[in-house]
Amino acid sequence: MANSQGDPPTSNYVYKGNKLVKRFQSGSDSEVINTYTGNLMVSTKFITTDDGVLHQQELYEYDNQRRVIVSRLYVHMNWEDRVIKTIYTYNPDNTVLCQRFTGNSVSQTTPGSRGKIWLNINGQVLKSEDYVNGGLSSRVVNTYDDKNSAFKNAVGFDKLYGGENTMTHNLLTSTTTYWSNEIVSQVDGFSNTFTYNEEGYPITRESLTIGASSPSFSQYFYE
């Protein structure tokens, strides 16, 4: 996928079958490595390519219904030993509760923020809310098209929440509202407009960020 602002970088996605095992951007010194057990993603590593330094790693655990129930984000930047653990609880109304804990690589016991995720019938995030000290701190609202995402056939991503790579359909709008002391303090977001090929996969994307004076453009290439 190529972007059009300045000298356009190209985002490259490397597959083994339907497994997305690596992604990197031209001109960048970092890459993302995904590891699978069967068709479930169990690890995502963020690595500097010139020296092989591991900056972040996220590990995932699943229940017997192949749903993610625990994720642990290990942050190693600047020699940190910081871990954010998220526990996911599933409700029958297609919502997911999230409880975050912080700590180090030995234990994560300090309570952090709580969250709630509302899913559509495709398992995509329609809305999510985060709460800090019992008060609403942020809300994200998303809308989607009915076409095919470029990552639709990448196995494992449909079990995770958030990010372009997790989507069956393409994200049209995303709006994030932040609260401070029960008052709206900031609103961020963007909108996307796509063109598609005959199979319904995107070939171009025009993105406009809230507050931006002009959009950015991306092209998709399939091999």
Rank of each mutant, 00 (worst) to 15 (best):
166 T>K: 13
104 N>C: 04
6 G>K: 05
64 N>H: 07
43 S>M: 05
81 D>W: 08
152 K>G: 02
218 S>D: 12
106 V>F: 05
209 T>M: 13
75 V>D: 15
51 D>L: 11
121 I>Q: 12
198 E>K: 14
202 P>G: 08
90 Y>F: 01
6 G>C: 02
128 S>D: 11
65 Q>Y: 01
136 L>T: 01
54 L>F: 09
178 Y>Q: 06
2 A>Y: 03
199 E>N: 12
126 L>R: 08
25 Q>I: 06
173 T>N: 01
208 L>Q: 13
135 G>Q: 11
178 Y>C: 07
184 V>Y: 09
216 S>H: 02
11 S>V: 06
106 V>C: 00
179 W>K: 06
120 N>G: 05
32 V>I: 13
162 G>N: 08
66 R>S: 15
78 N>R: 15
100 R>I: 01
96 V>Q: 03
214 S>V: 07
88 Y>T: 08
50 D>G: 00
179 W>Y: 04
36 Y>S: 05
14 V>H: 10
198 E>R: 15
64 N>W: 03
76 H>F: 15
65 Q>I: 02
134 G>E: 03
223 E>P: 14
164 E>P: 04
137 S>L: 04
50 D>L: 09
86 T>E: 15
83 V>E: 05
204 T>K: 12
118 W>Q: 09
23 R>T: 10
78 N>S: 14
91 N>H: 14
28 S>G: 07
79 W>M: 14
58 E>G: 02
165 N>S: 09
111 P>S: 07
41 M>S: 00
147 K>F: 11
117 I>S: 04
161 Y>M: 09
122 N>M: 12
75 V>S: 14
216 S>Q: 14
140 V>Q: 08
71 S>D: 07
51 D>K: 13
213 S>A: 08
213 S>T: 15
117 I>R: 01
140 V>I: 13
104 N>K: 02
187 V>P: 02
163 G>A: 06
113 S>V: 09
35 T>Q: 03
32 V>T: 08
174 S>L: 01
150 A>Q: 10
156 G>Q: 12
92 P>Q: 12
58 E>N: 13
2 A>F: 05
146 D>E: 13
142 N>V: 06
